[in-house]
Amino acid sequence: MKKTSLSAAAVLAVFAAGAAIAQSGRDYIAVVGSSTVYPFATVVAEQFGKSTRFKTPKIESTGSGGGLKLFCAGVGVQHPDITNASRRIKQSEVDTCAKNGVNDVIEVKIGYDGIAIANSKKASEMALTLRDVFLALAEEVPDPNGGEKLVANPYKTWKDVNPQLPARKIEVLGPPPTSGTRDAFAELAMEGGCKTFDWIKAMKKSNKREYKRICHTVREDGAYVEAGENDNLIVQKLDANPDAFGIFGFSFLDQNTDKMRGAAVGGVRPEFESIADGDYPISRALYFYVKKAHADVIPGMKEFLAEFTSEKAWGDEGYLADKGMIPMPKKERQKFASDAKNLTPLKL
């Protein structure tokens, strides 16, 4: 049984070596988090890796929530140094972090991302309002016959929703509930349309839970199709089915302008300038969070932050803008750049 003892020894050796390396430190930055920030963070990482003597940071796409969970698990080289998020960190997550010894967290807002409601160029253009979006996609809508009462969504075509729209079947491909894009869509687009009904808006104060349920629940009768996290797939499906609409990040629309057209929402088209000015209603901020305790331990942390917050990266004409990220106004950029430089901890 020489072989068994040999392989047992091999297994032990592997564990010992792995654990030794895990304890002896890590010479690259480990980043986790949002799949929306991933395309931008990876560009910065690559630039950083190729233009400095440090190793290229490793970036995992785990989703905003998953990233914060890993990030807040503790301090030490086996835990990630930075997490990306397509929403702000929650109080509950700050508490978890603090409980695990992650006390000082630096928040850096990097820019904005628009969420486009787009369809194929083969179909005619449509101008929507937030109210149309809500009525077309909510599980329950106010009774079309009037009164302060909810009924199961009866609308089958866009014309039913709003007589000015074409009589095309409502068919929307979008991200699943686990996605940060979906959260932002529910919060900005659905809720935005929902609160145009005064009696529902009044509910926000009296019955917040019910208000949220009405405004954020997406219908499940086939009009909204969960198309997975793969935005490329949605683009391909829209190309094949001109009647359908898709919901995805602006960067994908930007790369596919020959095939896709973003619908104007509230009279504003999803374009670089309109999102940057804040005119386009469905846009959200992107962040990353840094563990202060790691800043001096992991080589290259400060330099990586400097690269990310430099004008050539996130500036108006930086390489992140080329990839479809919408830059922040100059003043905001200065504030977050100095936060990153001085490692100013976040206070919620």
Partner: peptide
Amino acid sequence: IGMVAFIVDIPGGVTEP
């Protein structure tokens, strides 16, 4: 186990990402 990651550098050993 986190092997879905953006990794630019060519790995040089079994413990590198």
